[in-house]
């Protein structure tokens, strides 16, 4: 009698636990994880299969290539410049819109959608077309500057500008979200009444409080710039994207190795962001 009751209780407990276990949530999570992880594992596995005796041969070869380092460093420098320029452009813009021009938000949000609507190929042809004519003083034929497309620094300027367009939606959206989580308006007024100038407010109050948003925007920008192919190849810049693309056409194992390394780098960067921002997500207003 007692034992059957016990068994019933145990059964009930088991059923309850089953009920509490979010079976379908986990199922979808696992399926999603497989979708992302399997190709990566396959790539990794393939990159090791060049020479069974020397499993990391593909990596050795890839890293030995001086063109790899040159293009990789170039892309990193572009990424950093793009991030800094984007922050200088986007932070004050998003701040001002939140503060004084809330009615402009919809327009700016529409503009930030443009890079998704207009493909990069159109962007690059537009850039090339506009900037392959020399700069003249308005209303005269006096040339004061060569076309940007005709010298190296010029193309570098063009490519960073293009990257900024591509990265702007990500940067703007993460900065804007970051500003929503802190009460920008009141913090600004508090700082103003304490005597702070606009520069002080932005650098000492706003920027530190949207640090995690800035980092995620920066990371996305970094990922976009380092993996970008179209702008770089059409502008003839030796960036990492075109190099990887070219390598993929001629070699089998090195591209697999390099794409796996790229993923690893991205993950390390994400992990670092988690570490840096993890403990600082609290905002004002706690009781």
């Amino acid at each position: 009698m007692a034992s059957s009751k016990d068994r019933k209780v145990a059964e009930m407990k088991f059923i309850n636990r089953l009920r509490k276990f979010p079976f379908f949530a986990w199922l979808w999570f696992l399926l999603g994880a497989l979708y992302f992880v399997l190709p990566l594992l396959a790539t990794f596995e393939f990159s090791l299969s060049w020479d069974p005796a020397v499993p990391f041969k593909a990596y050795q070869r890839a890293f030995e290539d001086v063109r790899f380092w040159r293009s990789f460093i170039a892309s990193n420098v572009f990424a950093i410049i793009t991030i800094i320029a984007c922050i200088i452009l986007v932070v004050p813009t998003a701040y001002w819109i939140r503060l004084r021009l809330p009615q402009a938000r919809r327009i700016v949000e529409f503009i930030t959608l443009m890079p998704f609507v207009v493909p990069a190929i159109i962007l690059v042809f537009g850039l090339i077309r506009v900037y392959s004519t020399p700069f003249t003083i308005p209303f005269t034929d006096i040339v004061f500057m060569k076309p940007l497309t005709q010298f190296k620094a010029g193309t570098n300027i063009l490519i960073v500008a293009g990257y900024m367009v591509l990265a702007m939606p990500y940067m703007y959206r993460s900065v804007d979200t970051g500003m929503r989580t802190v009460d920008i308006l009141t913090l600004t007024e508090a700082a103003q009444s304490l005597g702070a100038s606009w520069f002080v407010i932005i650098t000492r109050v706003i920027l530190p409080n949207i640090r995690s948003a800035l980092l995620s925007g920066a990371l996305l920008t970094f990922a976009i710039v380092v993996g970008e192919v179209i702008l770089a190849s059409f502008l003839g810049v030796n960036a990492f994207g075109p190099y990887l693309f070219l390598l993929g056409q001629h070699r089998a194992y090195e591209p697999a190795a390099l794409s796996f390394v790229s993923f690893l780098l991205t993950w390390i960067a994400m992990g670092m962001i988690q570490l840096v921002t993890g403990g600082q997500n609290q905002t004002a207003g706690g009781h």
Binding site: V182, D183, T186, L187, E189, A190, A191, Q192, S193, L194, G195, A196, S197, V205, P208, N209, R211, Q282, T283, A284, G285
Partner: peptide, 17 residues
């Protein structure tokens, strides 16, 4: 920021950083 006035807000408005 040119006035010498102290202000206190309902939401405290302390700088979280």
């Amino acid at each position: 920021n040119q006035r010498n006035v102290g202000m206190i807000f309902q939401s405290y408005a302390l700088f979280p950083n």
